[in-house]
Design a protein around this nucleic acid. Structure first.
Lengths: 333, 333
DNA sequence: CTGTTAGCGCGTTCAG
DNA sequence: CTGAACGCGCTAACAG
């Protein structure tokens, strides 16, 4: 397969310029005869041609790529978002570059530099830090930058997030309507803006119902993991001397750990326990319990992110810097 | 932030050549004095420098990227594999490019061409076709190519897959030991090599136990989806006039659909139903039922894939072309 | 229709 | 230490 226009030129006998005009669809403009057009196109159709994107990038100062940095590529929420974003990119002939920060500032910075070095046309980040990043991004590049999922203030960049506050509010209200007695909120990685907003919604709902949240709200600062979920539930069971009749979790990982803990300490999961969790998963269908969950709309998030990316520079400052995407409360059983 | 060596040259007063020698660690070789080295390095430390990767690529004919094409980026198996592969790439300063084929040959071909055009150093594909691809890849490029997950024969390229046969064999054996009466295998996308191998394992185990598989094995050619799972289970319930006491699924999606169907037709999922499925998910913890599952080792798969990628061309032909990675049978409750 | 020219930024070599 | 030069392959403008 020829890899340069010159090779085709030599093989077909036409000049490099003519080859280029035909390849770049400028045949009309330069009045290339139909017969030579056909000869050249036939040659390419048979032998193929692989344009060298690096050379094109260098010349045009444009890479036709979008960079995406998320904490964990294997996380279902992020991978769904990535898939949605990739589809949008493909429609515009952009390629998506991905990197995982593993919640590590150092890795995140390296990924940012790498992407900047590759002159991505846009950069999408679910940041794991609030400090280092802004410094780094002062490098006034042409690159459009959008943050998502986590709105570390002050937001120097356009940001797209789910309506975590509304999620917390609605789910907690529903919970309070349905729970017989007290209920509990198991919370991991509480310092995260997204989690913080969920907690705010929770608090607001508690206030509406005249409940003192301090008795119910449990937090754990450290991280978002099943281990944390187990630990939180263990503490709860120790206090109550039995599993809670109703509880909420800040994420699926926490829920997973919490349920594992109930199972391992009591041997089973009582089907009368009322469960609520942020993030949704089809596998929640499998549980017999009443389950409330908050589903984020990854497609809508990706669309908003993409709109911001391709938004002309001139419009950047005038409009709202933060997009809030609606969530959906799902009730099972 | 300076973006060219020339800018640094102008700012520091040293020649471009000197700047380059220092940046590329050839100070010793060309005996650059320690003081100028320090001045230049300090300047870069303060102001930064963003190397233009396109120019480098063009010059070195190397992109420092690996391309990954999978049917669905949002699928948990593929996203875990992607995450593992990304980690391996980062260790070698390679960037992972990703694309989703959505099980569409046309999209797959486009993605391949796109990656070839970007001169990826390696290309990893979970192919959705057996025909078009080999033709396309005859373009004898320098790019290392590895297939994974699906071994469409004849395998023209090194391939890495899980031991699906063994998985089918072990899980079916266990099932036959534990199932009281008959059991059923709900199977989607049966023409896929991976699924085919699972079925072969299933058949082999049936034979060991002297069971005529035709009575048990159910297939549906079309696709792998929850809808197919529902449909298959509906057919089964219609036949038996009740949910099966034991069944196996070819994937989590099929299982999800099957369980949804049981729930919608009978109102609940009997905890005495013995369930088996390919692919594992922590959420299976949540079910009270006895569950067998086959867990693929994404990390090991990624490592094997990566080894093949960086394997010197000279060794390509001599060694085994197909790596089979062990699976793990997991039993819950 | 064709040929020429310039330049994108980097890596490298060669002659000072 | 420095300056000059080349070439990677492509785009784009200009002169025939």
């Amino acid at each position: 397969m020829p890899k340069t226009a010159e090779e085709i030129s030599i093989a077909t006998g036409f000049s490099i310029t003519t080859i280029r005009f035909v390849m770049n669809g400028q045949s009309e403009k330069y009045r290339i005869s139909a017969s030579t057009q056909k000869k050249i196109q036939d040659y390419i159709a048979i032998h193929g041609y692989s344009l060298n994107h690096a050379a094109r990038s260098l010349k045009l100062n444009r890479s036709d790529t979008i960079g995406l940095i998320v904490p964990d590529l294997a996380n279902a929420f992020f991978s769904r978002l990535m898939a949605a974003l990739e589809s949008l990119c493909r429609k515009r002939d952009l390629l998506l570059l991905t990197a995982s920060s593993h919640e590590d500032s150092e890795l995140e910075n390296r990924a940012v530099n790498n992407f900047l070095s590759r002159r991505v046309d846009g950069l999408v980040i679910a940041p794991c830090q609030k400090d280092t990043l802004p410094q780094l991004l002062k490098s006034k590049s042409r690159t459009a930058i959008v943050m998502f999922d986590r709105d570390f203030s002050p937001s120097l960049f356009p940001t797209v997030t789910s309506d975590n506050f509304q999620g917390g509010l609605e789910m907690t209200r529903k919970m309070l309507q349905e729970a017989d007695g007290s209920f509990y909120f198991l919370c991991g990685h509480a310092e995260l803006p997204s989690i913080h907003d969920r907690i705010r919604g929770f608090s607001a709902a508690c206030e509406e119902f005249g409940i003192r949240e301090s008795e119910n709200l449990l937090r754990l600062e450290a991280e978002n993991s099943a281990a944390v979920g187990r630990k939180l539930m263990q503490g709860l069971i120790d206090t109550l001397q039995r599993p809670p009749p109703a509880f909420m979790c800040s994420s699926l990982l926490i829920l997973d750990g919490a349920l594992q803990q109930i199972k391992s300490q009591t041997g089973h999961i009582d089907k009368d326990i009322l469960i609520a969790t942020f993030d949704d998963h089809t596998m929640l269908d499998l549980l017999p319990n009443r389950i409330l969950s908050i589903k984020q709309n990854e497609d809508a998030l990706a669309e908003r992110v993409f709109e911001r990316l391709i938004q002309p520079v001139s419009e950047r400052k005038g409009t709202q810097q933060c997009d809030i995407v609606p969530i959906e409360l799902i009730c099972r059983n």
